[in-house]
Simulated scan of single mutants.
Amino acid sequence: MIAILMGGNSAERKISLKSGEAVYKALKNQQVDCFKFDWDGDNLDKLWSKTFDSAFIILHGRGGEDGFIQKQLENRNIIYTGSDSKSSANSMNKYLSKQIWQRVGLPLAPSVLANKTAFVPDINFPLPWAVKPVCEGSSIGISKVVQTDQLQAALELAWRYDDQVLIEQWIVGGEYTAAIVGKKMLPVIKIISQQAFYNYDSKYHANDTQYICPCELDSAQEQQLQKIALEAFESIGASGWGRIDFIIDANNNPYLLEINTVPGMTSHSLVPMAAKAAGINFEELVRQIIHES
């Protein structure tokens, strides 16, 4: 019996519920014994009262991608999909993940950390800047700062979601994402948003966001991106499945943005899209994710 853990109490709850429904239908279509469990942040006792052998984690954001639910399952020796509690925590924290990637020499935009209770550090890289909560997903709380007098408002928005905020040089270029299932790289997707950047609305609501796959990079460039993505995934200790996001600037230099250890599985989601381009339908994708747990 598989418990599909969905919902949560993060800013990404609605998307998690959609992802969970899609996974549930895919498993039911394959006659797999499973049930949906809507975790609201305060009802885990109800989950532990149920009988199940494993868990499919499709909780996005805090609670689901930061190692919390993984640790609860580990404490009960229940197997689950995706990365373990430690690597999930490192992945969710954009500052920690950048530190890990910097140590192994992966390409990153310069950044500084701003704490809510301390002075904002000196920023010694040029505008524009991306201001983002350290532990939040789906581009929630992110602002683009093009002049310094916009910084305070951007920080205040980001601090609604986290006491720590990353101020990062905004790299102008094309947006790409590389998905991983097991150790297999899926085709890279190019993302063209009609918004200022690929924000929450572009990801989940807009119908004019374009997803290009094949991604229009030549074979060598795509393979380079996949190689960096796999190294980023493995260096942080991630496993099972995930997605790595990039920017490629006008000089064809790639920059790592972030890692997603529980990516979306909705109709707008990128991992199912990449899998489809590789000849893997949604039901097979779900099976592969379970197989890798």
Score class of each variant (00 low, 15 high):
Asn251Lys: 15
Ile57Glu: 00
Ala109Trp: 09
Ile2Thr: 06
Ile290His: 01
Asp249Ile: 10
Glu156Asp: 15
Pro254Tyr: 08
Glu21Asp: 09
Leu106Phe: 04
Glu168Ala: 07
Trp129Ala: 04
Lys98His: 09
Leu17Met: 13
Asn29Arg: 09
Asn75Trp: 04
Val262Ile: 15
Ile15Arg: 01
Val120Ile: 15
Asp53Arg: 05
Val131Thr: 06
Asn90Gly: 05
Lys18Asp: 04
Leu155Gln: 10
Leu157Pro: 07
Leu217Ser: 09
Met92Glu: 06
Arg76Asp: 12
Asn251Pro: 00
Phe52Gln: 05
Asp42Gln: 14
Pro121His: 04
Gln195Glu: 13
Gln99Asp: 10
Gly63Cys: 08
Glu74Cys: 05
Gly242Met: 03
Pro187Tyr: 11
Ala109Gly: 12
Gln288Trp: 03
Leu106Trp: 05
Pro107Tyr: 06
Leu151Trp: 07
Ser239Cys: 14
Ser293Tyr: 09
Ala158Gly: 09
Tyr95Arg: 00
Asn93Phe: 12
Ala158Arg: 08
Phe52Pro: 02
His60Gly: 00
Gly61Cys: 02
Ile4Ala: 09
Ile212Ala: 02
Trp39Ser: 02
Gln102Val: 01
His268Ile: 02
Lys144Arg: 15
Val165Asn: 04
Lys184Phe: 05
Ile244Phe: 00
Leu47Arg: 06
Val165Ile: 13
Ile2Arg: 07
Gly137Leu: 08
Val131Trp: 10
Phe56Ala: 08
Gln223Gly: 05
Leu155Asn: 10
Thr266Arg: 00
Val32Tyr: 12
Thr209Asn: 05
Ile58Val: 15
Asn253Cys: 06
Ser111Lys: 02
Gln150Leu: 09
Gln164Ser: 13
Thr266Asn: 01
Ile289Tyr: 01
Met1Asn: 12
Lys276Asp: 04
Asn199Ile: 07
Asp45Tyr: 03
Gly182Gln: 06
Cys34Pro: 04
Ala229Asp: 03
Ala55Pro: 04
Glu283Val: 03
Asn207Asp: 15
Gln70Ala: 07
Ala3Arg: 04
His291Arg: 11
Ile236Ser: 13
Leu127Gly: 08
Val165Asp: 11
Asp53Glu: 13
Asp149Thr: 10
Arg62His: 07
Ala130His: 06
Trp170Ser: 11
Leu59Ile: 04
Ser269Gly: 12
Ala232Asp: 02
Ile212His: 05
Ile100Phe: 09
His268Asn: 11
Gln99Ile: 15
Leu44Trp: 11
Gly240Leu: 07
Ser49Gln: 13
Arg103Thr: 12
Val172Asp: 14
Ser138Glu: 09
Ala206Tyr: 04
His291Thr: 10
Glu231Thr: 15
Leu108Ala: 08
Ser202Ile: 03
Tyr80Glu: 07
